[in-house]
Simulated assay, not measured.
Amino acid sequence: MRVGFVLLESFTLNAFSGFIEAMRLSADKGGRSRQIACGWEIMGGKDVTASCGLKITPTSELADPGLFDYIAVCGGNGYLERQQPRWLDDYLHRAADAGTPLIGLCTGTFNIARAGLMEGYVACVHWNVFEAFKEQFPHIRAVPDRIFVHAGDRISCAGSAGACDLALHLITQHCGHEKAQQSIRHMMLQGVRPSTHPQAHFYGEMQNVRDSAVRRVVHLMEQSLNEPPRVPELARQAGISPRQLDRRFIAELNQTPSRYFRDMRLRYGAWLLTHTTDKIAQIAVDTGFADAAHFSRAFRALYSTTPQGYRTAMQPESRNHTDPSADITKAARAH
């Protein structure tokens, strides 16, 4: 399996390193890093700086896309920019014309879409950039409820640790189960998460919300689940008074900011109950509640059951690893 990487300025190191390390450890025995079962090039004409400040030197110029099984675009903090270099558009079109599948790692999917090459495909994006993707590409179906979507010639990954799962998925397809297991053992992982493994589902659906202050405050809430700021502080960061924020939230979402934030934190708590084995006391802390008793009272009020009751009821579903993304994949391929 050969992959050509295109790193863009301010790319996210976690997604890139997770993907390429999974390949490196599958490529050779004993972690010796010889490019045998897997090969890669980091392509470009100059050093590229990750969002953390680390500089990466490319190993080659842009190479013939036909030399690779995949071209992976590693995006990052530049996803809000509405234009991109002409050389990137040209290269991605060359790859598509050559029949080389394109991978969007993290916000690299924005760049593939900006080149006009995601039409008719489903895009998997990180929950944190979901609204930005929908705003920029309203005609492309985007999903923030899984870690990657493999839809033939277009593969999109939410990024972060999910990039490692995507790499292992592709290694299994190209190199076999044992090569993927070799990498899993070296990386001390417990296994490969399927494409349908959900992202932490606590983001707010904002597609019908037009009030920019409300949208900004919801985004701030998403970043502060374990240490929830008070409404006056949220209002200050939005540039309005707490009373104005209350009125605008009720007008847009039919809830006060404090009620909306509490329900968001409880949704995150429900996700943690289903997808982790953390103790309820720890989940209470991670969702910004004072203690397990406070969390349990609020949880029961919203879900009509205790946290433990919810966890028990959801266990069979959380262990079901069948892939309900088949319909998404079929739809994506029928473009």
Rank of each mutant, 00 (worst) to 15 (best):
R2H: 06
G4E: 00
L13D: 12
L13S: 13
A15W: 07
A15M: 06
F19K: 08
E21F: 09
L25S: 00
S33L: 15
R34S: 14
C38G: 12
W40P: 03
G44Q: 10
K46Q: 15
G53N: 02
K55R: 15
T57M: 14
S60R: 11
E61N: 14
L62E: 02
L67E: 13
F68S: 03
F68N: 08
D69S: 08
Y70Q: 04
I71V: 12
V73L: 09
C74L: 05
C74E: 09
G76N: 07
N77P: 00
L80W: 13
W87L: 11
D90K: 11
R94V: 00
R94A: 13
A98V: 10
G99R: 09
G99D: 06
G104L: 01
G108D: 07
G116P: 04
L117K: 08
M118D: 06
M118Y: 10
V122W: 02
V125F: 07
F130A: 01
K134V: 07
E135N: 14
P138S: 06
D145S: 11
H150Q: 12
G152A: 00
R154W: 05
A161G: 02
A163M: 09
L170S: 06
C175R: 11
H177G: 09
A180L: 09
I184T: 03
G191D: 02
G191Y: 06
P194G: 05
S195I: 03
F202N: 04
F202Q: 10
M206W: 00
D211G: 00
R215G: 09
R216S: 12
V217C: 03
L220K: 10
E233H: 14
E233L: 13
R236C: 03
Q244M: 14
R247L: 15
S258H: 14
F261G: 09
L266W: 06
R267N: 14
G269I: 08
A270N: 05
T276K: 04
T277C: 00
I283R: 07
A284N: 04
R300M: 05
Y303G: 06
Q308A: 15
Q308Y: 07
G309T: 12
G309C: 01
Q315N: 11
E317V: 02
N320Y: 12
N320K: 13
D323Q: 12
D323G: 07
P324K: 04
A326T: 15
D327A: 14
I328G: 04
R333N: 15
R333F: 01
H335E: 06
